[in-house]
Design a binder for these strands. Structure first.
Lengths: 224, 224
DNA sequence: GGGCTATGTAACAAAATGGTTACAGAGCCT
DNA sequence: AGGCTCTGTAACCATTTTGTTACATAGCCC
């Protein structure tokens, strides 16, 4: 469960301490000493959790989160705050923050809460079903049904189809797919996508005349 | 009804007073003057009730219970509190506490409430059964029946099956299982889950042709 | 149609994954 | 202490899955 966690904290010592400990727990982290660049990151990347100091120079932490919420960013937040007056805490909650921890804080506590929040939100992620025409993808049991028939998929095939369905009618290029299905770091060839798509096609378009996955020459693939 | 009751109270006089009276009533008790070691006890032992001072030095009592709830500890709580402002009481309830008593308190009242809570929760405990197809898991006696046959399980196997049944039709990955079955702190290998699952499979799928626990390659396991 | 590029296909090799077993330490009971 | 069971770890092997490569085919522009 290598979640991606962004930390905003102006005191560098504390920032490093948090990053060190979270990475030791197996999380991917990225630290900032101001909210600069953070909004862009939240919008564009798949950030699982934000840890945010409330007492930043310049913008108030909760102010910032408020703005994020307004443009539809739902990333859960843990506030770090020296204040522990109740009014402040309430305000933090009101603005859509999910938890708060008062400084000085216990690293174990932070990690405990963080895991609790992740558990909650990650679970939401896996609940439910995604549907496209005759195709039903059950995210919980990881089963695929086409016209009621259960079709077995490998992990890769499932993730690939999941991404395609989530972006139906949008053409996804190979780079996008590599990044989202295969994951960021490792480097693969384009052809990898190619082959994977075709193995998936084989199962999906099997006996049907219908063609679900369409190749868009020169660009990528789409479920249209 | 020799329930096991843990008491956390920093004033030793009061602590002893409570322990004395509860033991006279036939309860097993264990007293602490701080929350140190208590979390571990709650996680690992079968504690029936927690009596907790809210005004502890250091961690807030309700804060502590909140953390316990987040990692899945369901032990009911009675708060002792000098505060009786409504806001405090509400907050205590919100965090999952089950009752509160304001100091100075009447020992008789404490015991009365305590018995009321125990009656309620003990009943839940013994009535609970989880069913999946031919499988009946009796949470009270911790017995497993498959098609009426009693099959012996070790603690680990039982907890594992319990988690699987509670999440039937959902694929649980190894991290999830490690966290929920083995518990948060300790660090184990994936392979540990692997072996445990297979030991469980051996017992469950024994003479049957039916396969209850399904391996989802690359992801985890599920009861499907 | 010819020539170009992009894509599909098949085959192979490498890597990942899970089952199985053996073993050792921990815990428990006698 | 001795013997028991339970459980975590490591090693090994079989299998599946996946990446890569080479080659065939299809699409597109002239």
């Amino acid at each position: 469960m290598g979640a991606f966690i962004v930390i905003v904290e102006d005191e560098e010592d504390i920032l490093e301490l948090i990053e060190y400990n979270l990475e030791k727990e197996g999380f991917d982290t990225m630290g900032f000493t101001s909210t600069k660049n953070v909004s862009q990151l939240l919008e564009e990347e798949d950030v699982d959790l934000l840890i945010m100091d409330r007492n930043l120079p310049g913008v108030e932490g909760s102010e910032f989160v408020g703005q994020m919420r307004e443009i539809g960013v739902e990333t859960p937040v843990i506030y770090l705050t020296a204040k522990n007056k109740e009014s402040d805490i309430e305000e933090g909650f009101e603005r859509g923050g999910d938890d708060y921890i008062t400084k000085p804080f216990n690293m174990k506590e932070l990690i405990l809460r963080l895991k609790a929040i992740l558990k909650r939100t990650q679970k939401d992620k896996t609940e439910g079903k995604v549907v496209y025409r005759d195709i039903i993808l059950d995210l919980g049991s990881r089963e695929l049904f086409i016209e009621g028939n259960n079709i077995e998929l490998t992990k890769l095939e499932f993730d690939l189809l999941h991404t395609l369905i989530s972006n139906q009618n949008i053409v996804l290029d190979r780079d996008y797919l590599l990044e989202h299905v295969w994951g960021g770091d490792a480097i693969y060839q384009d052809r990898t996508v190619n082959v994977a798509i075709n193995r998936l096609k084989e199962k999906i378009d099997a006996d049907k005349s219908k063609e679900y996955i369409k190749t868009v020459r020169g660009v990528g693939y789409t479920l249209c």
